[in-house]
Simulated assay, not measured.
Amino acid sequence: MPKYLLLKHYTGGPEQHRPFPPMDQWAPEDVEAHFAFLKNVTKVLEENGELVGVQALTPAQTWVRYGGPDAAPVTTDGPLPETSDLVAGWYMVDVDSRERALEIAAHISSEPGPGGEPLHEWIDVREIMSGSASDDCPT
């Protein structure tokens, strides 16, 4: 069965369907409802045997690159991507088809935001490479 990574972003992607403020400006009950929804998604995916993993990430970002054989790794907080697009978190699912991955992503996209209205947030869906070059790369 194929595995897919469903990426949630803080910003970036296509234009928002319905603009909404950053979460730190939401009412506490809206934040609670949002996370309760996401916890339920995790529970359902676990029960279905489709969940491989799920994690939320902080907005802090550090870039790292190899500094050379006699140097420490080079780190910096920038530059940020032009879109300031940061990954907020992800689900990894193991499903029967791409269609099922898209169905799960669409459901996650309906998560509640301010006032309980669905966010209609864009979810970035990426298939995980199988590990075999002959399977993953065109010839």
Rank of each mutant, 00 (worst) to 15 (best):
P2T: 10
P2R: 14
K3T: 03
Y4H: 05
L5Y: 05
L7R: 02
L7H: 03
Y10P: 03
Y10V: 07
G12E: 00
G13F: 03
G13A: 08
Q16L: 12
Q16D: 06
Q16R: 15
H17C: 06
P19L: 08
P19Q: 12
F20S: 11
P21L: 03
P22K: 14
M23Q: 11
D24P: 13
D24T: 13
Q25E: 11
W26C: 02
A27E: 11
A27D: 10
P28F: 04
E29D: 12
V31P: 07
E32W: 10
E32S: 07
F35R: 06
F37A: 05
F37M: 05
N40R: 02
N40S: 13
V41D: 07
K43A: 11
K43S: 12
K43C: 05
L45I: 08
L45G: 00
N48W: 07
N48E: 13
G49V: 10
E50S: 05
L51M: 11
V52E: 03
V54M: 10
V54G: 00
Q55Y: 13
Q55W: 14
Q55L: 09
A56D: 08
A56G: 12
L57C: 02
L57G: 01
T58V: 13
T58G: 15
T58L: 14
T58E: 10
A60P: 03
T62Q: 15
W63E: 04
Y66M: 08
Y66W: 14
G67T: 06
G67F: 07
G67K: 01
G67D: 14
G67P: 11
G68N: 05
P69T: 12
P69Q: 15
D70Y: 15
D70H: 09
D70R: 03
A71N: 15
A72Y: 03
A72F: 05
A72R: 05
D77A: 15
D77P: 04
D77V: 11
D77I: 11
P79L: 10
L80K: 09
P81I: 02
E82C: 13
T83F: 02
T83W: 02
T83V: 04
T83R: 09
S84N: 14
S84G: 11
D85Y: 00
A88W: 01
G89Y: 04
G89P: 04
G89A: 09
G89M: 12
G89W: 02
Y91C: 03
M92Q: 06
M92F: 02
V95Y: 00
D96Q: 15
D96C: 09
D96L: 13
R98I: 01
R98E: 09
A101M: 06
L102T: 04
E103Y: 06
I104K: 00
I104D: 10
I104S: 01
A105P: 01
A105Y: 02
A106I: 07
A106H: 14
H107C: 07
I108P: 00
I108Y: 12
S109W: 08
E111I: 00
P112Q: 09
G113A: 07
G113T: 04
P114G: 15
G115C: 06
G116V: 06
G116R: 12
P118M: 14
H120V: 00
H120L: 06
H120G: 06
H120K: 07
E121G: 03
I123S: 01
D124F: 01
R126M: 03
R126D: 00
I128F: 05
S130R: 07
S130H: 10
G131S: 10
S132N: 13
S132A: 12
S134H: 14
D135A: 15
D136L: 10
C137W: 15
C137M: 12
T139M: 09
T139Y: 06
